[in-house]
Computed example of a mutant assay.
Amino acid sequence: MPSLHAACVVLGESGILIRGPSGSGKSSLALLLAAERDGAFVADDRVVCERRAGTLVARPHDALVGQVEIRGQGILSAQDLGLAIRPEAIVGLAIDLVAESPRLPEPPEDAEILDLRIPRLVLDRGVRRAGLAPLLIRAALRKQKP
């Protein structure tokens, strides 16, 4: 199974795959989302992905189950942080963390992972620093509801 350098959480019933370069804030965003009342932690750092019945399923790498790295704190247990934990998630949204994006960007194309198209949201550093990421992620998830 392929492993991605990413983090994964669940909000409600939607799996969210967070991608980005090292140090971009994947783990921090994952923890913020997992700490929401309807959030749960799935994986950090190495996310194993597979196709299952036409869906993308993400789970933690066996060596990292329930663990999250927080810069300056080290490797911590998601359970010790008081987070709900899920063993896997059906990914409904891919988030790409970038340094900068245009002021008025075009809507992003879907992510393509294991030949599956997944709705995608691009969040730049400014949006994340302003604390707007959770709001924008929930808006993206609402757009997917019929």
Rank of each mutant, 00 (worst) to 15 (best):
G39E: 03
G12K: 10
P60T: 03
P87K: 06
L32M: 12
L17H: 04
I18V: 14
S101W: 04
S77L: 02
R142F: 05
G54R: 06
R52L: 12
S27A: 07
L135V: 11
V48Q: 13
A43E: 01
L97E: 04
L31Y: 01
A34L: 01
V9L: 02
A111S: 15
V10P: 05
V48E: 10
P60E: 06
A89C: 10
P102N: 06
V98N: 11
R71N: 03
Q73M: 14
L33S: 00
R138T: 08
Q67R: 14
A99H: 09
L116H: 10
D110L: 03
F41P: 00
R138G: 04
Q144H: 05
L31F: 00
S101G: 12
L135T: 12
I90S: 13
R46T: 11
P2H: 06
L31N: 01
I18P: 09
P105Y: 07
R51D: 08
L121K: 10
A35I: 01
A43W: 00
S27L: 07
A40M: 02
K143V: 11
E109G: 15
G15S: 06
P107E: 05
D124V: 10
E36N: 00
A78H: 02
R128M: 15
P87E: 11
D96I: 09
S3P: 02
I113W: 06
I95L: 13
V122D: 07
A35T: 01
G12T: 12
V57S: 02
P119F: 05
G126L: 13
L136K: 13
K145E: 12
E69L: 02
